[in-house]
């Protein structure tokens, strides 16, 4: 039997702009977490019925702490931003599919755009743990240097961290996929970020025949696969079909997805 669980907020601090860095104490649930999965957090405001899916940035099995980084853009996330250390929250999870790491791969590219960066940190840690000799390159894309997050955190696991900004205020001027394209010599690419970024990433990987896994986002209601709200188009023979992001995804093989929008 799976259950909802309660977690104590240890920290919920503003990182920059509207971006918050939250730590939740849930010693049992962190043990189950896999890179790429998410938690669904109920806001506690009775007028907001739906839980908010939040990607897991880190799950520390020793300290029992989840790290979640989110942008407070809507009513729900703004509500979550008001949570204080000591508050208890109700959650579901960890939920969804996860990033698989294949033993034959040596050179890894992790591409995170904006709020797609946090789940890549959990993956970088996993790869480093499973393949000590792995060469991990992380490509992070942000609007400007004022939006850059997690650069130092990634350096703990990655051989290189390359930042790209839309306005050129930090690193390469351009997006994370353009940064990646400068040196496309990878065995596998993992990505998370805006749909348009993932579309270009998938195209890039397909042209070079590099395996590519991406994590996608959709509006969710139940977050367990029952309501069919959060679907994405997946190739189905000659045709396509809608698949649920919350339980078939959020991680998909990029070449299975239909990138028409």
């Amino acid at each position: 039997m799976r259950e909802m669980f309660y977690a104590d907020i240890l920290e919920n601090k503003l990182l920059l702009g509207e971006v918050y860095d939250m730590r939740l104490y849930a010693p049992k649930e962190v043990q189950k977490a896999k890179a790429g999965q998410f938690l669904s957090l109920y806001t506690g405001n009775a007028a907001l019925l739906l839980p908010r899916p939040l990607s897991i940035c880190a799950a520390d099995t020793v300290s029992g702490v989840f790290r979640v980084i989110y942008r407070a853009v809507g009513e729900g996330t703004r509500e979550i931003a008001t949570l204080k250390p000591g508050d208890r929250v109700r959650l579901l999870g960890p939920l969804g599919s996860f990033y698989r790491v294949f033993p034959e791969h040596k050179r890894f590219a992790l591409v995170g755009g904006g709020m797609g960066a946090p789940p890549m940190l959990a993956l970088a840690k996993k790869i480093r743990k499973e393949a000590l000799d792995a060469h991990i390159s992380v490509f992070l894309g942000f609007r400007s240097k004022f939006q850059t997050i997690l650069e130092d955190d990634f350096k703990k696991y990655a051989n290189e961290v390359i930042v790209a900004t839309d306005d050129g205020t930090q690193g390469i001027k351009g997006n994370a996929v353009q940064a990646l394209a400068a040196d496309p010599n990878f065995d596998i690419i993992y990505g998370c970020g805006p749909k348009i970024m993932l579309k270009f990433l998938a195209k890039f990987a397909e042209e070079r025949e590099i395996p590519c896994y991406v994590s996608v986002e959709e509006h969710m209601a139940c977050s367990v696969g029952a309501c069919l709200a959060c679907v994405v188009k997946v190739k189905d023979g000659e045709n396509w079909a809608y698949r649920r992001v919350c339980n078939t995804g959020p991680v998909f093989n990029a070449k299975e997805l239909v990138w028409d929008e």
Binding site: A47, L49, G76, H219, A221, C227
Partner: peptide, 17 residues
């Protein structure tokens, strides 16, 4: 097949689907 996304929108004390 069902409809394209977004398929839901939250609303005060409810949701649209």
């Amino acid at each position: 097949l069902g409809n394209p996304t977004p398929r839901i929108a939250e609303s005060y004390g409810g949701m649209l689907n």
